[in-house]
Simulated assay, not measured.
Amino acid sequence: MAASPMIYEHIKLPQDCFECHFLEWIIPDVDETLENYCRRFCKMIQDENPILIGTSFGGVIVQEMAKMMKVDRVVIISSIKSSLEFPRRMKLARSTGLHKLLPTSLVEKSELLLKYNLGISKRKLELYHNYLSVKNQYYLDWALDKIISWQQIEPIKNLIHIHGDKDPVFPIKYIKNCITVPGGTHVMIIHRYRWFNENLPGLLS
């Protein structure tokens, strides 16, 4: 939900075909709706008929943006294209509000966690530290609530869904009609970048 554009640092698309622009997360206004938040992102795009690519929560964002502007296509990675693809625990969180009890404030203390290794693997902590650009608790609480309460039933048109079969956040057994990356986890955009460099240009052309 808070990863910086650095997660795409190893993705190399042919420069004679594609020009890449990266959007940074913005802090939502108090009680801002997801619709209004996505509308602010749309204003950052100057080109006509862009291809929008989003990973995880970013996948939800670009789908909402595509409802507000004309796009060539939308690519979502390690994400969901319908609220029907939520795993059971997220559906439970939506009905009970349990997600509001998660200790999102710990993200603001990633340096401390990295120093003392409080029960989290060093590799994961270093990954969070290197790639999480937004460590604002209000943003994290807001984003978590928006993705849990997302209600899209029918996938949008011109959508390409790329998903790993080892994704623990959105397990593949709940995902329909996607391009499956063998061995891909929720952070495969980082760890499986070679697959994307080999296959993404063809999918976008």
Results as ranks from 00 to 15, higher is better:
Ile7Glu: 09
Tyr8His: 07
Ile11Pro: 05
Pro14Gly: 10
Pro14Val: 00
Pro14Glu: 13
Cys17Asp: 15
Phe18Leu: 09
Glu19Arg: 14
Phe22Tyr: 15
Leu23Ser: 07
Glu24Asp: 15
Trp25Lys: 08
Trp25Pro: 03
Ile26Ser: 13
Asp31Ala: 13
Asp31Gln: 12
Glu32Phe: 12
Leu34Thr: 00
Glu35Pro: 00
Asn36Phe: 06
Tyr37Asp: 06
Cys38Glu: 10
Arg40Trp: 00
Lys43Leu: 13
Ile45Leu: 09
Glu48Tyr: 03
Ile51Ser: 01
Leu52Gln: 03
Thr55Cys: 14
Ile61Phe: 03
Val62Asp: 01
Met65Ile: 12
Met68Ala: 06
Lys70Gly: 04
Val71His: 02
Val71Gly: 05
Val71Met: 05
Asp72Met: 10
Val74Ile: 12
Val74Arg: 01
Val75Arg: 01
Val75Phe: 03
Ser79Gln: 02
Ser79Val: 03
Ile80Gly: 04
Ser82Ala: 07
Ser82Leu: 05
Glu85Arg: 05
Phe86Arg: 14
Arg89Ser: 09
Lys91Glu: 11
Lys91Tyr: 00
Ala93Met: 14
Gly97Phe: 07
Gly97Leu: 08
Leu98His: 03
Pro103Asn: 08
Thr104Gln: 11
Thr104Arg: 12
Ser105Gln: 12
Leu106Asp: 13
Lys109Arg: 15
Lys109Gln: 15
Lys109Ile: 00
Leu113Val: 01
Leu113Ser: 09
Leu113Arg: 02
Lys115Gly: 02
Asn117Thr: 14
Leu118Tyr: 11
Gly119Ala: 06
Gly119Asp: 06
Ser121Pro: 08
Ser121His: 11
Lys122His: 14
Lys122Thr: 13
Arg123Leu: 06
Lys124Ser: 13
Leu125Gly: 09
Leu125Ala: 10
Glu126Gly: 06
Glu126Asp: 12
Leu127Ile: 12
Tyr128Pro: 03
Tyr128Glu: 14
His129Ala: 13
Asn130Ala: 15
Asn130Ile: 05
Tyr131Ile: 06
Leu132Val: 12
Leu132His: 08
Gln137Glu: 15
Leu140His: 07
Trp142Cys: 09
Asp145Asn: 15
Lys146Ile: 05
Ile147Trp: 07
Ser149Trp: 00
Ser149Tyr: 03
Trp150Tyr: 14
Trp150His: 12
Gln152Met: 13
Pro155Asp: 12
Pro155Ile: 07
Leu159Tyr: 04
Ile162Ala: 06
Ile162Met: 07
His163Gly: 01
His163Thr: 02
Gly164Asn: 01
Gly164Leu: 05
Gly164Ser: 05
Gly164Asp: 05
Asp165Arg: 02
Asp165Val: 03
Asp165Phe: 01
Asp167Trp: 01
Asp167Leu: 02
Ile172Ala: 09
Ile175Cys: 04
Lys176Gly: 04
Cys178Asn: 08
Ile179Pro: 04
Pro182Leu: 05
Pro182His: 07
Thr185Gly: 11
His186Gly: 08
Val187His: 12
Ile189Asn: 05
Arg192Thr: 00
Arg192Asp: 15
Trp195His: 04
Leu200Phe: 04
Gly202Ser: 10
